[in-house]
Structures are given as C-alpha cells and as structure tokens.
C-alpha cells in the first residue's frame, strides 16, 4: 500500500519540479528586442573577469538579446579553450605566451589582442607597520627570489635599518597570472619564486593575513588594496628613479614600474567577423571602456591606450 502512495506522490512531484524549471527557464526569452542576439562566450583570467562581466552587464542594458557569460579558467586555462575555438573572448592578465600562440596557430585560430585596463600590482603591509614605506625592487627581489627560501627570515636581512623581526610572506598561488607577472617583474624569471610563503588563489586570505600582523607583507591587484585601505598600507616601489606609490596616475603615466601591468582581452577574429553580436560586444567594450573599468575598480587606460583600443576594436570583423 505505502509504496503505491509513494509512487502516486512521486510522479506529480517530479512533474511540478520539471514544469517549474521550464517556466523559470523560459521567462527570459521575451527579452530579445535589440538588433542582435546570441551568446558571447568568454573565459580566462579571474582577475579580468570582473571587467568582462561588467561589460556584459552594461551591454545587456543596450542589447537585451545578447547573453554574455564569463568563466574563470585562469589565463592559461582560458587560452587552452580559446585556441580550440570554443570561446569568443579570452580574458588574460598577461600577454599570450609563445607556446599558447603556437596552439592557436595549429588550430587555425586567429586572434586580436586588446588592452582593456591597467592594474597596479600592489605590495602591502599592515596599517600598523611603522618601518616600511618604500622598498626598492632589489629589496623585493631579496625577499622573494628562490635563493631567499629558508634564509631570508627576518626584516634586518632585507635592509639593516629594519628591525630584526620575523617576516611572514603572503602571495599569489602559482596558477595565477598575478604570480607569473610578479615573479617575472621582480625576480626576473616567470614562475621563479621562493616557495616558503602563504600561497593563495584567494586574495582575501592575503588581506586577512597581512592586516593581522605588523611584520607581514604580501602582494595583489590594486582593487584589493583600495577596498581594504583602512587596514593595509601600500608600499612605495623604487625601481631606480625614487619611490613611487601605486595609484591610478602613476600606473597610467608609467612611473609605477615594474609592477603596473596591462590587462587584456583576446578576441577570436573569426567570431568577430561571423557573429555580429561578438563584434558589437567588443565595440561596446571599447566605447564604454571608462565606465566598465570604473565598475570593475581597475585603473583606466591613458589617452594613448584608449585610442589604440578604439582603433583595434574598429579594425575587427
């Protein structure tokens, strides 16, 4: 008896669930009133993701018929699927590497690189740290190079003026473009870093770790510093021409070296030519770049870079 009841109850339950789902699924279809419709597939760097997401969100207000979806496979993971022709746009926090470009070549995928924003990798210490305001690139190298592993453990080893207190290091995990860029810029070789530090893909862990200890140091994208500027202090960087603090201005005019980095999107040329909505999205990305960058809390392009973005976007398709 009981099993019959169950069977009678189960069927309607399943039906209700399926109907409910399809009703929910269908509710968006009435929205295609724009000129173009389709789905723009973007994947790649998790750092650049907020930019392309903001672009997609603002674009949807103009072209409700176009869906934009953004994944976070990482810069490398993004290029992997991009070069198989599976995505229209690949977000990247560093330029494409030769090996990745070779993959694209092999699969016959042609692409265009567009710089869409600037980021300033920011070296941070706790707001309570009273001995660090500026570090030279050499000091940063002493701190982070592979040879420092197990040896550089107190601050006086970095600079004799600093106290002999223990250093605790926070940094990006090895899968991130941030790690690639930082190691290349500071240690001179991409991927070369000491390994005895708190490595994390989640920059909020670095925020918590560094703000909790006056002798800790870490690095991440500028937006994480901006959101936590009450707890953290940005370290000025001296690459030979004096100490420069990370800021939108210093990143734009090129004085914040070597840690200001360009952020890119790579567009599949064939997608842009064959799919009008991809081309429309990239055009929008270029035209509304200032708003998009502001929404994602990155550093806007300077005039020269803006012109270049507009010209490149125009030449597509």
């Amino acid at each position: 008896m009981t099993s019959t009841i169950l069977r009678r109850a189960a069927l309607p339950a399943v039906l209700v669930l399926t109907l409910g789902l399809s009703a929910c699924g269908g509710s968006n279809e009435s929205g295609s009133e724009g000129d173009v419709s389709g789905e723009v597939l973007a994947d790649g760097s998790s750092t650049v993701q907020p930019l392309t997401a903001a672009a997609g969100e603002l674009f949807a207000e103009e072209e409700p018929g176009v869906n934009v979806s953004v994944g976070t496979a990482g810069t490398g993971g993004g290029f992997e699927v991009f070069c198989q022709g599976k995505t229209d746009i690949s977000n990247a926090s560093r330029p494409i590497e030769d090996e990745e470009a070779a993959l694209c070549d092999k699969a016959g995928v042609e692409y265009t690189e567009l710089q869409v924003a600037t980021d300033a990798l920011t070296v941070v210490v706790s707001a309570e740290n009273d001995f660090i305001t500026c570090l030279t690139t050499d000091e940063l190298k002493t701190l982070w190079e592979p040879a420092a592993e197990g040896k550089i453990t107190t601050w006086d080893q970095v600079n004799p003026d600093f106290p002999a207190e223990e250093i605790s290091l926070f940094g990006a995990g090895t899968d991130s473009g941030t790690f690639d860029y930082f190691t290349d810029a500071i240690n001179g070789e991409e991927g070369a870093s000491r390994t005895d530090y708190n490595a994390t893909e989640d920059d909020n862990v670095t925020v918590t770790g560094v703000s909790g200890s006056p002798t800790a140091i870490g690095y991440f994208g500028f937006s994480y510093f901006q959101e936590n500027s009450d707890k953290l202090k940005a370290v000025e960087v001296d690459s030979g021409d004096g100490c420069v603090a990370p800021s939108p201005e210093s990143a734009q005019d090129g004085t914040y070296t070597p840690l200001a980095r360009p952020l890119f999107i790579y567009v599949n040329n064939k997608s842009a030519a064959d799919k009008p909505y991809v081309k429309a999205f990239v055009d929008f990305y270029a035209e509304q770049n200032a708003d998009i960058v502001a929404a994602a809390k990155f550093i806007p392009l300077n005039e020269e870079q803006s012109t270049e973005l507009a010209d490149t976007a125009e030449s597509l398709g």
Partner: peptide
C-alpha cells in the same frame, strides 16, 4: 564543476541541457 568551466558571470537563465 569549476574544472568543467562552470561560469561565474551569467546574465540569463539556463534554458536547456546545452545552456551555460
């Protein structure tokens, strides 16, 4: 699902088996 390329930004309702 992250490994499978689950999306993190999507501004439409999934509407089928082949939808993101």
């Amino acid at each position: 699902l992250l490994l499978l390329g689950g999306l993190v930004f999507i501004n439409y309702d999934p509407d089928g088996l082949f939808s993101g």
